[in-house]
């Protein structure tokens, strides 16, 4: 109740309550895929490829949501703003960050960085698997297991350069994936620090969608 009393109209607005169900589900789906594929599943294995495609689908829907979703989920609510991000980090160090209706400017930069990494990881992953869907890969493997080795024959004339490209793709894939894991750790650290500074749990709205204490 004391929260209500000290709040005139010129005081800070209510803490935002912004995460709609699509943002929440896609957040945890991608977090799960990144953790499993980054740390647990066998690189190049069936599960790894399946989960990579799940991440691609989730990312595609989330990016679409950035255009058609509610205002807090739209890109227009958190355009990249490096100056604002630095200002926000400075305010955070001083212990009084301000509230934002969507991602804070530093968080927004993080979002774009993570999406960028994920896009690179997915794209290079597709290059390494020759754009084959996991269904096709499974069919090919079944064929090889059954004794039909013809699918292993590389019939393209540019096989040489293809393999060279695969090497680069592999390097990029690992680099971007490791960068993404590192950024994810920074992201979690940022959430912890900001939760302390704002004195409210920032994880709960991402879990239940209810940030306000009613």
């Amino acid at each position: 109740m004391s929260r209500d009393l000290d709040r005139g109209a010129e005081a800070a607005p209510l803490p935002p309550d912004p995460w709609d169900p699509l943002v929440r589900i896609s957040h945890w789906l991608i977090a799960g895929v990144v953790l499993v594929n980054g740390l647990l599943s066998k690189p190049g294995g069936n599960l790894h490829v399946w989960l990579g495609w799940v991440a691609l689908g989730t990312l595609a829907v989330r990016l679409l949501w950035g255009f058609v979703g509610p205002s807090e989920a739209r890109f227009s609510a958190f355009l990249p703003d490096p100056v604002g991000a630095l200002r926000h980090l400075r305010d955070l160090l001083r212990g009084r960050p301000s509230e934002y209706p969507s991602h804070n400017p530093a968080g927004a930069i993080m979002v774009y960085a993570l999406w960028g990494c994920l896009a690179i990881v997915v794209a290079t992953g597709l290059v390494m698997t020759d754009m084959k869907s996991p269904v096709t890969i499974a069919e090919d493997r079944a064929a090889v297991a059954a004794g039909d080795w013809s699918v292993l024959v590389d019939d393209s004339e540019t096989a040489e350069s293809d393999h060279e490209g695969d090497g680069i793709a592999k390097e990029l894939h690992e680099l971007a994936a490791n960068l993404m894991l590192l950024l994810a750790m920074v992201h979690v650290g940022g959430v912890v620090i900001e939760s302390r500074a704002l004195r409210r749990n920032l994880v709960r709205p991402m879990l239940t969608g209810r940030g306000k204490m009613k």
């Binding site: 896609s26 689908g57 989730t58």
Partner: peptide, 10 residues
């Protein structure tokens, strides 16, 4: 919606 999106991508 997400399920549809993932299915569509596959």
């Amino acid at each position: 919606l997400l399920l549809q999106g993932i299915a569509a991508v596959f």
